[in-house]
Amino acid sequence: MSAAPPAGAVDVHRPGRADTTPPARRPRLVASLRALGYVSPIWVFVLAVGIVPTGYAVWMSLTEQTLTAPYPAFVGLDNYVQAVFTAQFAGALGVTLIFVLAGLITQFVVGYLLAVCLHQQLRGFRIARTILLIPMLLTPAVVGLTWNFMFNPDLGVVQAIQGVFGIHANWLADPTLARLLVVMVDSWMNVPFVMLLVAAGMTSLPEEPIEAAAIDGAGWWKTTRYVVLPMLRPVLVITLLVRCVDIARIFDHIFTTTQGGPGTATQSVTLEAYNSTFQFFQFGHGAAIALALALIMFPVYFLYVRLTKI
């Protein structure tokens, strides 16, 4: 869970009622100016922290600046040719895509299952919810470090546990397992988020259709498939988008869990951009790579704006 798009905007409709502030006969212009006044801090922050830096990054991606030549020279699309249209970038994009798909599937299946369990509100479910919620709150960078520690193939606790079952897998050396590990860490932290949202969605569902389905003799799966899931769709879609964006840009816990290894098996696009920028100091390459990711995520952004109907 990072600075994600709003869970809070799921079914916001067009502006509710007209201006309810008193008195009603004030001229429109003044009312508009006042509304602008309310959001002016947002304008300032969004421009200063988001839009201007993004523009700056676009400009950086079109220039060459190295350590020896800190004065930028315009080079057109060279950075994109050298850093984005390459096999390496394609590989990193593939890794990011795997993380997104595997992460979404895991987090939704497990999150949904746990939401169903919580929704029954059996005795003690609040305690379970409290415990399940904790991983969501923790610092991703530090979580990555501790998982790396637990998965140390010689000394780590996971080695000891799987040893009991006669398994001696080295999670950090096998490309598939290493990717799985990243997905596991991400899911460990984010299943609670999906769970909470879905459980909240379930609480607000009307009882009648579900009861009707039960009376018709539909089993759990059929009720879920044909009644509950369609009703939950708005919540699910928004949660999906939120998670999708977040996984696509994860950095902290890959950086600290696998460092992109083995080889480049968990080298995601964000890690690639980080290395170009902060290890090799090729600011142009780094900006081009990061912006390429942002561009690829644009459809998600578009969907998001559409769905939230702000």
């Binding site: 600075a3 994600a4 798009p5 709003p6 959001v39 947002i42 304008w43 969004v46 421009l47 922290v49 988001g50 839009i51 201007v52 830096p53 993004t54 700056y56 990054a57 950086m60 964006v245 696509a248 840009r249 950095f251 964000t270 951009a273 980080y274 920028t277 600011f283 780094g286 900006a287 990061a290 912006l291 990711l293 942002a294 995520m297 998600v300 952004y301 998001y304 704006v305 939230t308 702000i310």
Partner: peptide, 20 residues
């Protein structure tokens, strides 16, 4: 404004850090 705000939410932080 809403669209700009969503951009801030979805843009990878790595894009923003060097400009910032």
């Amino acid at each position: 404004l809403a669209s700009l705000m969503v951009i801030v939410q979805v843009i990878p932080i790595i894009v923003l850090v060097i400009p910032l």
